[in-house]
Design a protein around this nucleic acid. Structure first.
Lengths: 343, 343
DNA sequence: AGCATGAATGCAATCGGTTGCAGCAATCGT
DNA sequence: ACGATTGCTGCAACCGATTGCATTCATGCT
């Protein structure tokens, strides 16, 4: 502000230049030093509203998360924050509770706050809001889920490989009746994992009717529990279950207990994500580990890359790079050999 | 913006008044309607940077959390968001990772972004940053933890009652050698719970040497595990443990397993907070339920109250109201009668 | 009719940095 | 020695919404 300039005996324009790293080369080193110490003395903090107003950049990015209480997302958020903070950006986290209206509200609120871009973890396969957003040209990176139209850069775990690993593990244990309790088919993760599951069992020469798929209406334990009951009604001879994610697996665990089935002695169970506390379940869950922190970090990097380019060229290159991060199977105690036939 | 005003055939000042609910009474109803439809047509979103610049209010509050991956905090954050969003405010969440340097950085960054106030869940008993912040006069509300100097309004669970309930429960089961694995004594929750523990056992007529306290260096499972080992080295005759929080309890569970002790048959265990997944542990944890969502919601309400007053009177009333929300004991499977003497 | 009243709107300053352009001095080149 | 170049700084416009004040016009009152 002008107080600082006055104290340093210069014009406020010079003070501004001295304080801004990218323009400080324009002022005399001695003057710059004087200004900086003056700023220090006065405890000066630049008013970012004024800066944004003039520069049209807020150094803030909006992060849309479907549900903070799902342990999957906090690490993603941290990864995002880490990368962003290192570059002087701030992440604005917002919950949508998987509610499209709430999502729209949050999105508008953030746009109004002049965020420079978005990292979005709430994508549905068909997503009007994102279509509109694409038209408007806001920089956006998708994380975890994506839309059917591949309009945006996208970072996710390698779901196909993950599911293949899970099925191979179960096959290796001797299972031949493997079911999949899938996540909602309105999300890309839901269909990708179903497709990978089908491919894996088919490759192993298992007849489709011995590899049923039921769909859970959401990625939550209660929904997973209901879907598992449904599965076991129709296919009581199932010996192993691949769950769409760890919360569905947790619900499956509840369903098994309710039916008097032991895991893994009667039925083996594999989760997906390796979320926090998956190793504390009873039994500790065998699951596919997705590097959540890296997911967020990589998404943030992609967005920054996009923002840099935006700044330089003034126009966004039409970039919809997809990044799959490697996953691996973590074997714990929820999987074992199938019970002897007819036991 | 002026485009809207032009389309509606009015001056931009009128447009501004028409669009702002609090000043829309100043313009003709018909004109206001015309402006609103014009704004709608053009997809106008007000530039909040410009508004903040002029009004010195950003309708944004900063939320400082020690660790998002601790399941205690996401519900708090949601409670905050819910109340804030309903009033047109946005919450800016920031992680500090329990790191004072990082906390300072985040705090400065948020101040620079002109937040109207803070909700802080990272308070230490001695906290230079907060002392400075108090001097500067920023509206702040503390949640969960507080500083020794009671400078700020503060919302927390009723820890003293909670701990009393836990101890009574154990006494009722017949335990007479109850230990407390406490949280860090640098935080108010750590000392409050120790004090309440000591008071409860003393009231019950238990000799202090039969009610030892060991301190865990942090609210995490690994630290809790180490502290529990230390406890059991020194006091092998312990039959029940009150943990400083659920993560410490989880660590205690690991320690017990490592030592070949069964829970609850050999040793009973009570947690604190009733965090998400505490019911999935092996065994499901008996714990004190703190209403996390309400904690956040109430803190947000207190802050809004403060902000409203700030706006009216121009000067903050020196208010440091304390709100304790009621807690209750949730009995699960980690507590039972002590083993028969000498078994 | 004449003047006061009040509602509705326009005008212009303002918030606090940023930045294109101009001015000025010192140094350089020939 | 003189014009050109370079380095540094000042000037002033500008970003977009808000708001105190002035203006206009219609209505009410006597």
């Amino acid at each position: 502000m002008s107080d600082v300039a006055a104290l340093a005996g210069v014009h406020k324009a010079t003070a501004s230049r001295a304080l801004n790293p990218s323009t400080s080369g324009l002022v005399n080193a001695a003057t710059a030093r004087r200004v900086r110490t003056a700023a220090e003395q006065l405890g000066f903090t630049p008013n970012s509203a004024a800066r944004s107003l003039r520069t049209n950049r807020s150094f803030t990015v909006g992060v849309l998360l479907p549900d903070l209480t799902n342990p999957l997302f906090p690490p993603v958020a941290r990864g995002i924050e880490e990368v962003l903070n290192a570059r002087g950006y701030t992440a604005l986290l917002a919950n949508t509770d998987n509610d499209e209206a709430k999502e729209r509200t949050q999105f508008e609120a953030l746009r109004g706050r002049q965020v420079d871009g978005f990292i979005i973890a709430t994508a549905q396969r068909v997503h009007p809001l994102l279509d509109e957003a694409y038209e408007s040209g806001v920089p956006i990176v998708l994380v975890n889920r994506c839309t059917d139209k591949r309009l945006f850069p996208w970072v996710a775990g390698d779901d196909a490989t993950g599911m293949a690993l899970a099925v191979e593990h179960l096959l290796g244990l001797g299972h031949r009746s493997i079911a999949h309790v899938a996540g909602p088919q309105s999300m890309s993760t839901g269909v990708t994992r179903v497709r990978a599951f089908r491919h894996a069992v088919e490759t192993a020469g298992i007849a489709p009717e011995r590899a049923p798929v039921v769909v859970s209406e959401s990625y939550t334990a209660p929904a997973g529990e209901r879907a598992t009951h449904e599965l076991l009604e129709k296919h009581p001879d199932t010996t192993a279950i691949c769950a769409g994610n760890d919360l569905i697996a947790l619900g499956a665990l509840h369903a098994l207990k309710a039916r008097g089935l032991r895991c893994p002695q009667d039925i083996s169970l594999v989760g997906f994500n390796d979320m926090q506390f998956a190793d504390e379940f009873q039994p500790p869950l065998t699951t596919v580990r997705v590097p959540h922190l890296d997911l967020g970090a990589e998404a943030a990097r992609l967005l920054l890359e996009r923002l840099d380019r935006y700044e330089e060229k003034g126009h966004p290159a039409p970039m919809s790079k997809t990044v799959f991060l490697p996953v691996r199977l973590v074997v714990r105690a929820s999987t074992a050999a199938p019970p002897p036939h007819g036991a």
